[in-house]
């Protein structure tokens, strides 16, 4: 198998992370999500909790400044370390699945990249979040709105493109229509077709 990089962008509650993990299992490749936090924590000597605090979090523009590529924002520095990490992994020829981290933009020059964006119906996402986090409907909806707002801000501040814009991804799919398992089946077929296509070139 040649190199395969699967980038999974996702709306909160859409099951994007589970889809990414299942795809990783099916292709027998690692998934970089939580692992990225551990990696940065090990590399820098920071605690995982500290890295987690700034992970995929947008900086506040009013208290941040950038000078010749340097930024005082801890969020920016953690983000850049993660971008470097996935870029180096991609350059090494390794196959992997990466969740979020603007990976569909940061790795767009790699021909082995398959970029996906997982969306979902609001009622299905809400139910999922209510079950996982044991929240009432209103709190679940608020959490979804808050998380998606942060992901959008994070993505848009680190790239020149809009989070969730269909033109950024090879495939955007609503996981509520087929359910998580069938969505994974469908995506696996698409990715295998892409791999066949790449190997014929």
């Amino acid at each position: 198998m040649g190199q395969l990089i699967i980038s999974v962008g996702r709306e909160f509650g859409s099951g994007g992370r589970v889809i990414a993990e299942t795809l990783a299992e099916r292709f027998g490749i690692p998934v970089y999500d939580r692992h990225l936090i551990t990696e940065i924590a090990t590399k820098t000597g920071m605690s995982e909790e500290e890295v987690e605090k700034y992970n995929e979090t947008p900086k506040s523009r009013l208290v941040s400044r950038r000078v010749r590529g340097y930024s005082n924002s801890i969020e920016d520095n953690i983000a850049e370390m993660q971008f470097d990490f996935i870029r180096k992994k991609a350059e090494s020829g390794e196959s992997f699945v990466v969740v979020g981290r603007c990976s569909e933009v940061k790795l767009k020059d790699f021909s082995s990249l398959v970029s996906l964006f997982i969306t979902g119906d609001m009622d299905k996402k809400t139910e999922r979040v209510m079950n996982i986090y044991e929240l009432d409907r209103e709190s679940a909806e608020d959490l979804i709105a808050e998380k998606d707002r942060k992901r959008k801000k994070y993505h848009n501040s680190h790239t020149d493109s809009e989070w969730g814009d269909v033109r950024l991804y090879d495939l955007t799919i609503n996981s509520s229509k087929l359910g998580i398992d069938k969505t994974v089946d469908f995506l696996e077929g698409y990715i295998r077709a892409r791999m066949d296509n790449n190997s014929q070139k």
């Binding site: 820098t44 000597g45 500290e50 208290v63 400044r65 000078v67 340097y70 930024s71 520095n77 953690i78």
Partner: peptide
């Protein structure tokens, strides 16, 4: 403040990249 001058931004950035984040 950390954003008052260019040197502050560069110094706090180098520290953060090496695992020593400096908050406001």
């Amino acid at each position: 403040t950390p954003i008052g001058a260019s040197a502050n931004v560069v110094g706090t950035s180098v520290a953060a990249k090496n695992g020593y984040p400096i908050s406001w």
